[in-house]
């Protein structure tokens, strides 16, 4: 009996994929309606976007934005009791898990890039991070020019050397790249004096500094080497679902609710340790809220 039900469900869902039974639904919305569940992908330690609190529950700025999207899906499909599942993802597995249907939307700190758009879709950008550098205040490093000949830490994924060279001021300098396994390692390299600077997304640097032993010892300095937009990751070529997500996020940005959420997570003490990131909204983020766009970075 159970087997035949499974077969029935499978053939129904295959039929649903091949030719949508409900003419007005397709893609992810159809999948959510058929399964009665929506699966939200989240990160475990992307503070303050998407991370686990003391009870191992996913929270954060991106999670709150996604909760609003889930509400919109509920009312769109007229399914108030839609079941919401959470699935932790990493930067390695988030794209395959999106593609194979394990998660329906990913709410973390994923850069919306042109390369990734080959694989997945993105909502409008809800945050812009700038690649800058964290230094020890006593190191005397104040600008990119001060890095000549010095070791510079970065984490797998961004090539600080290339970014520094691209930057006008940095053209005449040569740095020694060293690589940390993760952001905590790269930061430790600066803390222990192995590296003169750690080049990374400024918001992540702010988080590392805020939770370090002596936050006053460190500073974020230098110009932005590159601006990277963060977006909610969706499946590729799923226009109806993307339209719904975008409409929800743009609504939040225009009503001022997104800014309230921003202040809650970036300008106030946040769980689990009640650390305040003190990270005021940058002109880039303000612009992203004023004129929402889903353009990816090259």
């Amino acid at each position: 009996m159970r087997k035949s039900l499974t077969v029935l469900a499978l053939s129904l869902s295959i039929a649903g994929l091949a030719a949508p039974a409900h003419a007005q639904l397709s893609g992810t919305l159809q999948k959510i309606k058929d399964s009665g569940t929506i699966t939200v992908g989240h990160r475990e330690s992307s503070v303050p976007f998407s991370y686990l609190d003391a009870e191992q529950k996913p929270i954060g700025y991106a999670m709150e934005l996604c909760a609003k999207v889930v509400d919109a899906v509920k009312s769109e499909l007229k399914m108030p009791s839609l079941q919401v599942k959470y699935q932790a993802v990493t930067s390695q597995n988030r794209i395959p898990l999106m593609q194979n249907g394990t998660i329906d939307l990913e709410c973390g700190s994923t850069t919306n890039s042109v390369a990734r758009q080959q694989q997945v879709g993105f909502s409008v950008n809800y945050f812009i991070t700038s690649v800058r550098m964290a230094v020890r205040k006593d190191s005397g490093v104040k600008d990119i020019g001060d890095l000549n000949g010095k070791p510079v830490a970065t984490t797998t994924g961004t090539t600080s050397d290339a970014l520094i060279k691209q930057n006008e001021k940095g053209k005449a300098i040569d740095v020694k790249n060293i690589y940390g396994k993760d952001h905590a390692d790269s930061f430790l390299m600066v803390e222990s004096g192995r590296a003169a600077a750690f080049v990374m997304d400024d918001i992540l640097l702010a988080g590392l500094i805020a939770s370090s032993k002596n936050p006053a010892d460190f500073a974020i300095v230098g110009p932005s080497l590159r601006d990277e937009p963060y977006g909610v990751m969706l499946r590729k070529d799923d226009a109806p679902f993307k339209a719904l997500v975008d409409k929800t996020l743009i609504g939040l940005m225009q009503s001022g609710e997104a800014e309230k959420l921003y202040n809650k997570w970036f300008m106030n003490p946040i769980p689990p340790r009640n650390v305040n990131l003190n990270f005021p909204m940058s002109p880039a983020v303000k612009a992203a809220f004023a004129t929402p766009s889903d353009k990816g970075v090259e």
């Binding site: 794209i95 990734r116 694989q119 994924g157 961004t158 690589y179």
Partner: peptide, 23 residues
């Protein structure tokens, strides 16, 4: 790779981050 050697696994992670062509 965890102590900063740019060996095969490091490049593997780096290329995934850059291109997303995981498979």
């Amino acid at each position: 790779y965890a102590v900063g050697i740019l060996e095969l696994y490091f490049q593997y992670k780096q290329i995934i981050e850059k291109t997303s062509q995981v498979l």
